[in-house]
Design a protein around this nucleic acid. Structure first.
Lengths: 239, 239
DNA sequence: TCTTATTGGGCTAGTGTCAGACCATTGACG
DNA sequence: CGTCAATGGTCTGACACTAGCCCAATAAGA
C-alpha cells in the first residue's frame, strides 16, 4: 500500500452525485424503511432539512410520484402522501436485488454495517445513560417485539437506529442510518418469518441487556451475532 | 423520541456546503494529516478523484496557496507543492482549538471516532487475512514505531487508516478517514511526548496482535483503550 | 540546443441549483 | 357560506459548477 492507495479513502468524491439524484435516493429510502408513516413534511420544511432548494426537492418528489411511491395533494392539509406498500418478497426478488447491487458493493455494505452498528452498541454500553434514555431503549424493544408483520421491518430499523442516536453523536447516527439504507432493498426482499422474528427478539433482548448493564464487550458481541445472521444469508447469494 | 426526531439522522442535509468549501476542507485535512508528503496529484487527476471540475479545484488550490499551505509551479514536473510544517504545539493552542470546535461537535467527533475505529478493528480481526495483508499491517506498525518526531502523527494516522482499509470496505475506510479528519486539528495541537509515544507503541502492538490472532474482542478492547487516552485528554478541556 | 511530454492557466457555452416572490387550491372553522 | 391559514405550483434572475478546449511554461532527454 503506497502513498497513492493510502489516499483513496480521503480523496474520494466530494459529492456523490447531483442534488436531484441524491434527494430521490434519500426520500426513497426513508419511504422504504418506513421511517415516515403517512406523509412527508411540507416541502419548505423538508427542503430546509435536506439543505436543498424547493425546486430540486419538487423535482425529486415528482419523480417518486411518477414511480408510484407518493400521491401529492394540494391545499391546506395537503402534502405528499405515501402510496407504497412493501411487496411480498420472493426468493427471486432477493437474488435479483443482490445481483443488481453487485457483489463488491454488497460485501462493502455488509462490512460497513457490521462495523458501525457494533461500534455504536459498544459506545452506548460504555456511556452512562440517564433513566429517560434507558427507557427509550426499552420502549423501542417493546415496540419491535409487539410489531405486526407489516410493521416489523420498520420498527426493527427504528430499534437499531435508536441505539446509534442514543449515543448522542449525530455523525454516528448518520452513518448507521446510511448503513441501513444501503441494505434496505435487500432486507425488504427477505421474507419475514415468524421463526426469524423470534430468533431476532432473543438477540435484541441480549443487546439491550448488555447495553443497560454497561457491558461494551457483550453489547458488541450481541450485535455482531445478530447482524451475522442476515449477512450470512445475503453472502450466500454471492457464491 | 417521536417520528420527527427519528428522522433527523436520515433527513440530514444532502450536501455539506458548496463544492469549493468542501474541497478546501478536504485538501487542508489531507495536508494537515500528512497523507501527502511532497506535492498533490496533477489537477486533472485530482479533480477526477474528487468528482469536481478543474475550475472548482483550482479555486480551492488558490485559496490554500494564498493561505501559505501550497506553492504552485507550472510546467512539466510542476504541481502544487506542500509548504506546510505543523507548528510546535502549545497548551494554549489546544485550548483554543477545542474552544473553536465547540464542545458539542468535539464530543460528537470523539464518540464517532471511537465507534468506527473500534468497529473497523473488530471486523478486521474477524476477517480471514491473506499473508500479504497481514504483512501490510505489520509494516505499518513498524513504520510508526520507527517514526521520527516530525513523522509521528502522519504515520500514526496511516497505521489507523490501514486497519480500516484492510477490511476491504471503502465505506468503512471513508468514515474512519472522516473521523480522523475531524479531530486532526486537535491532535496536531497536542505535543508529541516520548512517553506518550512509548505508551502508544505498546497499545499499537496489542491491536495488531489481536487482529492477527483473529480475536475481535481483544481488538476492539485494545483500540478502545488506545483512543480513550486522547479522548480523555481532550474531554478534559470541556469542563 | 531543440523537442516534447507534462503540467498549470485561462476561456466559453451550457447546465444545475438556489433564493425569493407570487399564484392556486384546499378544507377546517367561525 | 365565507374566511383564511397552510400547502403545493410556478416563475425569474442570479450564481455555482461543469466539460471541453486551447494556451503557456517548464525541465528531462535526445
Amino acid at each position: 500500500m503506497d502513498e497513492v492507495s493510502r489516499l483513496t479513502a480521503v480523496l474520494r468524491p466530494v459529492r456523490a452525485g447531483n442534488a436531484f439524484e441524491e434527494t430521490v435516493e434519500r426520500l426513497l429510502q426513508v419511504i422504504k424503511l418506513g421511517l415516515v408513516s403517512e406523509k412527508l413534511p411540507p416541502e419548505r420544511e423538508l427542503a430546509a432539512q435536506l439543505g436543498i432548494s424547493r425546486v430540486t426537492l419538487r423535482e425529486a418528489i415528482r419523480e417518486l410520484q411518477e414511480a408510484g411511491y407518493l400521491e401529492v395533494r394540494r391545499g391546506r392539509y395537503g402534502g405528499a402522501f405515501l402510496t407504497y406498500a412493501p411487496p411480498d418478497p420472493h426468493r427471486d426478488d432477493l437474488r435479483r436485488a443482490v445481483v443488481e447491487m453487485g457483489t463488491d458493493d454488497l460485501s462493502d455494505a455488509l462490512t460497513f454495517r457490521m462495523a458501525v452498528e457494533c461500534g455504536a452498541a459498544q459506545v452506548l454500553a460504555a456511556t452512562p445513560l440517564t433513566p429517560e434514555r434507558r427507557e427509550i431503549l426499552r420502549e423501542r424493544l417493546r415496540e419491535v417485539n409487539s410489531a405486526g408483520p407489516g410493521d416489523y421491518r420498520r420498527l426493527d430499523t427504528a430499534f437499531h437506529l435508536a441505539i446509534a442516536e442514543l449515543t448522542g453523536s449525530a455523525l454516528l447516527a448518520g452513518v448507521c442510518a446510511d448503513a441501513r439504507l444501503r441494505v434496505a432493498d435487500l432486507l425488504n426482499a427477505i421474507p419475514v418469518l415468524q421463526r426469524n422474528i423470534e430468533h431476532a427478539a432473543v438477540q435484541h433482548q441480549a443487546i439491550v441487556t448488555a447495553i443497560l448493564a454497561g457491558d461494551p464487550e457483550a453489547a458488541r458481541r450481541a450485535v455482531a451475532e445478530h447482524l451475522e445472521g442476515t449477512a450470512a444469508l445475503l453472502r450466500g447469494f454471492l457464491a
